[in-house]
Write a protein that binds this DNA or RNA. Structure first.
Lengths: 250, 250
DNA sequence: GCGACTTTGTGCGTGCCTTCACAAGCGACT
DNA sequence: AGTCGCTTGTGAAGGCACGCACAAAGTCGC
């Protein structure tokens, strides 16, 4: 190590910025698994165990964890509790992040009631829509307000993250309202590329695209299977040659 | 070009396999935008236009498109209709992909009714759950069946893609059933790493992780802002220095 | 107290992805 | 017909991420 451990150091800004994007995504996964392990009473985990449980290469995992500091003990592994705490701090989960959700349609309704959010430190504290039939009702105890109230309500409730689950046509204007409200991180479920000032971070989740990617792989597999069948025309009737329901070690 | 164009060639398996994963994801995005353009009556698009609309580097877009063959006209751009057709073929959207969904909870219910799927060539043709209160009801005209029927129902309806929206604890066993049913592509919303034989492709969508990644960026931005405020202590009261609701050119 | 074993942390080679920059090709205009 | 301008397609360079393999560092057993 080049730097002294600095046991109880607050935050290390320089380090935060240098964590590769790909690693951040995995850190969140490690954190979840570590949470489970903690509940099961585990005190330490080795990188091999945690890597296997999260489907990651052990070396990659260790490198990921090294970005947030050396919290492992050689010959033993990682102390679960300490690692959880450190990860939460790194990921900004030490203070709760209030979330606002716009668009109470099919998907939005589900997101509003999704326990995975509030259960993991992301309380949904504001709901918005334009539909007069929806404005005024409560979902999970939260009032649905009109979209135009965004610039007022969000700062008041300390919203740091906005989720957009509107139709594509409304997404950009909602996004503009979020920006106006000072929200600097947006999770976008609408199939549009949002235009935002550079200090605003947008992540896009596009369910239809996910399926299309899978469809591509279906096609690829079919072609591969056809080739295989053509070249080596041995056995394997076109009933499914899948091997049982066993567990595999990848 | 090394190869002759081969105008109406069927499928080119060798090429399919060589498309980088990252490009496939973007091809799906291009396809959607091209669909919109086609509806607006556009006949051609330049790589610059399409790149701007999808938030991608123009050179990257051209390279992506080059993987599926040269369908552009120099000096003019890409013929929208032809490109749409070619993309659909490459992504395996020329034949509809039947989708099965397991887990009719909060999220599952929304997914079952999500118009973005059936509207884009992914009809949800089977729903499953274990809850006796759910089994037997219809959602959007589709019967909810018991999970144990998966190995029987899926092949019968030609299901090629399975979606798992169950709690984490049930995901692996459902996955095993899909595998048994011959489903080779799975979209997993449960926060677990699924163990599958290698011929099966799994994509994972983890909403909580998406939020945690954003939370990290919130923290990062806060630190950056604090630094900036500390070093250059000029103006910018801590009201939001955001610039209006204008449109930005990135 | 010492040696053997275990596990972390990381330097380094490898391959993929991105981006720049430019030649090749096509249409329009004269 | 020739020239000019525009856009594609791609070679090459740079950067990032992955994963191996090993040294450093700690624990456990004797």
């Amino acid at each position: 190590m080049t730097k002294p451990p600095h046991a109880g150091s607050e935050e290390s800004p320089a380090r935060l910025r240098s964590i590769p994007e790909a690693s951040v995504a995995r850190l969140a996964v490690y954190l979840r698994k570590l949470g489970e392990l903690a509940e099961e009473g585990a005190e330490t985990v080795s990188s091999d165990e945690l890597a296997a449980a999260t489907g990651v290469n052990p070396a990659k995992l260790r490198k990921d964890l090294s970005y947030i500091g050396s919290y492992g003990i050689r010959g033993v592994g990682y102390e679960v509790a300490a690692l959880v705490q450190q990860l939460e701090r790194t990921l900004g989960l030490n203070h709760r992040q209030a979330v606002a959700l716009v668009g109470i349609g099919n998907l939005g309704h589900a997101l509003a009631g999704y326990s995975g959010f509030s259960g993991r430190g992301f309380p949904v504290t504001a709901l918005f829509d334009v539909d007069p039939d929806l404005v005024g009702i409560h979902i999970n105890g939260i009032l649905v307000e009109h979209v135009r109230a965004i610039p007022e309500v969000c700062p008041a409730r300390g919203v740091t993250i906005g989720m957009i689950a509107t139709p594509a046509s409304a997404a950009q204007s909602v996004c503009d309202l979020f920006v106006e409200a000072g929200v600097r991180c947006i999770l976008n479920f609408a199939p549009v590329v949002l235009q935002v000032p550079e200090e605003v971070e947008v992540r896009k989740v596009d369910l239809a695209v996910e399926l299309q990617i899978l469809a591509f792989h279906v096609a690829r597999k079919n072609v591969a299977a056809a080739e295989q069948q053509a070249t080596a025309a041995n056995a394997s009737v076109n009933g499914h040659p899948v091997n049982g329901a066993g567990r595999f070690t990848e």
